Simulated assay, not measured.
Amino acid sequence: MSDVGPELHDDEALAAEHALGVLSARERALAEARMARDPAFAAQVGAWRERLAPMLTAVGPVEAPAGLWARIERALPANDNGLLKRMRLWRGTAMGSMGLAAAGIAAAAMLASQPPVVIRTAPPPMAPMLDARLASTAGQPMFVAAYDPARKAMLVASLMAPGADPNHSHELWLIPADGKPRSLGLVAPGTSKSMPMKPEMAGMVTEGAALAVSVEPMGGSKSQGPSGPVAAIGKLARI
């Protein structure tokens, strides 16, 4: 399957990450130096802070249960040594539970920040926005996604470290009520991506539909469904 959808704008993503406080010390210093010399970028950061402030107050920390990674490793297929090595790599680099909350907020807020749709006639009732948290079979959060029905776009964010698993592609699948997976495209580790939905698929994005990410050969699955192991899965729910 070929990849679809543009990557998120670098400046906008950096401003959001600075406002959320998820940058490293070096990245934060570079961002603040740029704010001092670039009023437009400083204004972007300020807008993100104002937009996210009320949402962040509702996010509480969640402790990861003891022995979580040991259970993940035991749940992996015994004959998939490559995947086992990758999961061990992710254990040392994956974000914690607050990273999951921040990425989920960034996904929803980034959709909300897009230019408004101009309404010239009274629109029909709009379906609610949906989001999903995709986790491994052991409960480890790995991806977050949000769907905006007004723009018919899925925003997905990987919680893994950039550059993790360079020998495989991670492919996002929509699994609607009929149980047949439909590919939405590829998501590189540690990145966020907006995926426009094809008209015939937009109606399948409903509350309770599942999203899954599979580990595929480079370039994605060559079949009509996942050809590699499913790394994470979750269901869409109302925001």
Rank of each mutant, 00 (worst) to 15 (best):
W48P: 01
R49E: 11
R49V: 03
R49P: 01
E50V: 11
E50D: 13
E50P: 03
E50N: 07
R51T: 09
L52P: 06
A53Y: 12
P54Q: 05
P54A: 06
M55N: 08
L56I: 12
T57H: 13
A58Y: 13
V59W: 13
V59A: 14
G60V: 12
G60R: 14
V62Y: 00
E63A: 14
P65V: 10
P65G: 08
A66D: 14
A66H: 11
L68Y: 04
L68E: 07
L68N: 04
W69F: 09
W69M: 04
W69N: 05
R71A: 10
R71G: 02
R74V: 07
R74W: 00
R74H: 10
A75N: 08
A75W: 05
L76C: 06
P77A: 11
A78Y: 11
N79Q: 14
D80H: 02
D80K: 03
D80F: 02
L84P: 00
L84F: 03
K85W: 08
K85A: 13
R86S: 04
R86K: 05
R88A: 08
R88L: 09
L89V: 09
L89H: 07
L89A: 08
W90K: 02
R91P: 02
R91N: 08
R91E: 13
G92C: 07
G92P: 02
G92L: 06
T93D: 01
T93G: 05
A94D: 02
A94G: 11
G96H: 03
G96W: 01
S97N: 12
S97T: 12
S97M: 13
S97G: 13
S97W: 08
S97P: 05
M98I: 05
G99I: 00
L100C: 09
A101R: 00
A101W: 04
A102V: 00
A103H: 12
A103F: 05
I105Y: 05
I105P: 00
I105H: 10
A106I: 07
A106N: 12
A107L: 01
A107C: 10
A108H: 04
A108E: 11
A109W: 05
A109I: 09
A109E: 04
M110C: 06
L111S: 07
L111D: 09
S113R: 14
S113D: 13
S113W: 04
P115Q: 01
P115H: 03
P115E: 02
P116Q: 00
P116S: 00
P116G: 00
V117E: 11
V117Y: 02
V117A: 10
V118T: 13
V118R: 15
I119D: 09
R120K: 15
R120L: 15
R120A: 14
T121V: 14
T121M: 12
T121P: 01
A122G: 06
P123Y: 07
P123C: 01
P123N: 09
P124K: 12
P124W: 06
M126N: 13
M126E: 15
M126V: 15
M126Y: 11
M126A: 14
A127S: 13
P128G: 07
P128D: 05
P128H: 09
M129R: 15
M129V: 11
L130R: 03
L130E: 05
D131G: 14
D131Y: 01
R133I: 14
R133T: 14
L134Q: 06
L134K: 06
